[in-house]
Simulated assay, not measured.
Amino acid sequence: MHNTEWLQGSGLAADERGVVCDTFCRVLDTQGQAIEGIFVAGDVARWPQHLCDGDLIAVEHWGNAVDQARNAAHNMLSATVNYQEYKHIPSFWSSQFGINIKSAGLPNLGDEVMVTQGSVEQYRFVAAYGRQGRVIGAVTFDQGRWLEAYNTLIETGATYPPQFSAPDQPVDMQSQKAGFPAVVQHA
């Protein structure tokens, strides 16, 4: 929830989910038209993400805030013909219980997932996420050195499942539906 109530009645496309902008970080009006000279960046910005067919997303992570602010500043200082589209690939990392976890893309929007490298049992693996036949995200557990290769697959819209031979590739790679398993109720 964002503190945008002060924008109510301004004519800007803003609500509790954030301020809507185009791929150049220009704020949109309530009719969906870009307003020249008004830009937005950071947690409050919702923009059409190229990885998910232009659906609006907001990424509440400092890496996105820095990159988007840089992109918005460039466009503020440039002639319209020199604007740069914001095509950020979200990423994060965390260490949990001695395991380094890294992510790229939008795995939360994947409709399929597959362990493509390593071993889940050893807590050292890479999982690739697909959406509508394209690689949309990857999560690594103590396998961060591979993330850049998966980031390239995401950026280029590579087909899912990814086609490559890795030395630590599981023998029976199986794609499965992404998401949380259904809760089984016992009587």
Rank of each mutant, 00 (worst) to 15 (best):
D55M: 09
E121V: 15
L153T: 01
A58Y: 11
Q49F: 00
D55Q: 14
I38A: 07
S10M: 11
V66H: 07
A187V: 08
Q143V: 08
D55N: 11
D29G: 13
L77W: 00
V115R: 13
Q163E: 15
P161H: 14
D29E: 09
H61G: 00
Q49P: 00
T159C: 10
I101T: 03
G98D: 02
T23S: 03
F164Y: 12
Q122K: 15
E148S: 10
G144W: 05
A128I: 12
Q31L: 12
E112S: 13
L106Q: 06
R124C: 15
I89H: 04
S94L: 05
Q176N: 07
P170S: 14
N3K: 13
T30P: 05
P167L: 12
I154C: 05
A69H: 03
G54K: 06
E121F: 15
T159I: 05
G63D: 03
Q143G: 04
I99V: 15
Y150L: 14
Y160R: 12
L56T: 01
T140V: 04
F141Y: 15
D29R: 11
N108M: 10
S94G: 09
E85D: 00
E16V: 02
S175Q: 14
A187I: 08
D15L: 02
H186M: 06
N3L: 09
V120P: 10
E121W: 13
T140P: 02
E112V: 08
V19S: 11
G105S: 08
Q176T: 10
S103A: 10
N75H: 01
Q33D: 04
L7I: 02
A178P: 06
I99H: 15
A34Q: 05
F180T: 09
G11D: 08
S94A: 09
V66E: 09
V20D: 07
Q96M: 12
G144F: 10
D142S: 15
A158G: 14
R70D: 09
A72C: 01
N100Q: 12
A65F: 03
F141I: 05
H186Q: 04
G11L: 11
Q33P: 00
M76I: 09
K177P: 03
I89D: 07
V184N: 10
G18V: 01
G32E: 13
Q96D: 03
N3I: 06
R26L: 04
N75Q: 03
G133E: 13
C21Q: 02
D67L: 06
Q84Y: 05
L28A: 09
F92W: 06
P170T: 13
I38Y: 06
S165H: 14
R70N: 05
Y150N: 06
Q8H: 05
A79L: 09
L28D: 07
C52I: 10
L7Q: 02
M173A: 14
A182E: 15
L147G: 04
